[in-house]
């Protein structure tokens, strides 16, 4: 796996799209910090943009990458190595390069603005962890989609829909449900629904370190327990790890039975 991963990473890290991605976040971070001149505001703005852009880029760029490298994958499949080895290698190559690009783009401006010695350093690290996780999860979705269908147009359609669903439609339905059933206790429901969507989950993880604690008490006892103690971080982290594995394991399952 490492061999495939290595060359896949070589390939990716020389891609102009990856450079563009790095540059984008460098400029965004820098602009946020420059305009606000405040790490905390810079961080919250970056959070909003990252939660939107990173899943989108991961899934679209990922689907594109897996479709484009299809013939090369065929060539690799004829070599004396396991299928899953090839697929995992490519998956890690893609997600690692995207993650590196994201980290590099944001770390430089934030370090220049002194995030390491600031009181939001932990929040910042949490943001990076959460967004990198999202990158891995959505790269996983990308490889899964490319394995499910050989029809590129269909694949891109799925990708965009999945992104739209997870970042937008899901929360809309969620909010609507909360309104419709506002007479009922919805706290456990809310937490569960949040856990079921990796984008929401990543957001909550950052917010646990960022500012949701200041809103504590406004809500009910279950929220208080969840957000006010380590329980929240524990449950969210465990669920996030589950999400990290889920698309990859599914992809491997599909990949094993697939006819190339």
């Amino acid at each position: 796996m490492f061999k495939v991963f290595k060359y896949s990473l070589f390939d990716q890290t020389r891609s102009k799209w990856i450079y563009l991605y790095t540059l984008f976040f460098f400029l965004v971070s820098y602009a946020m910090l420059y305009l606000n001149n405040d790490l905390m505001s810079g961080l919250t703005n970056l959070l909003n943009i990252s939660l939107l852009i990173c899943p989108l880029v991961s899934i679209i760029f990922g689907t594109m990458y897996f479709y484009n490298s299809r013939e090369f994958t065929d060539l690799l499949l004829a070599q004396p190595i396991k299928r899953t080895t090839i697929l995992l290698g490519q998956y890690f190559g893609l997600s690692s390069s995207l993650s590196l690009a994201y980290l590099l783009g944001n770390l430089i401006p934030f370090i220049l603005y002194g995030v390491i010695v600031s009181d939001i350093f932990i929040s910042f690290i949490m943001l990076l962890i959460a967004v990198v996780s999202l990158t891995f999860i959505f790269s996983g979705f990308a490889i899964m989609i490319s394995l499910i269908t050989d029809n590129r147009i269909k694949g891109f359609g799925f990708s965009i829909f999945l992104w739209l669903f997870m970042t937008f439609i899901y929360d809309g339905i969620f909010l609507l449900t909360l309104f419709l059933f506002s007479d009922y206790p919805m706290e456990i429901f809310s937490i569960s629904v949040t856990m079921l969507n990796p984008v929401d989950l990543a957001r909550i993880l950052i917010m646990l370190k960022l500012d949701i604690t200041s809103m504590l008490g406004y809500t009910g006892a279950v929220f208080n327990k969840f957000f006010g103690s380590e329980t929240g971080i524990m449950i969210s982290s465990i669920t996030l790890i589950f999400w990290l594995f889920m698309p990859v394991i599914l992809s491997m399952k599909i990949g094993k039975r697939k006819d190339f």
Binding site: Y7, S8, F10, D11, Q12, R14, S15, N68, S69, R70, E71, F72, D74, L75, A78, Q79, P80, I81
Partner: peptide
Amino acid sequence: YRSKISYLPQIANFPDNL
């Protein structure tokens, strides 16, 4: 067993940046 087989695929398409 594939180490005993050489394969030339129909379409030659390689990673762009290698």
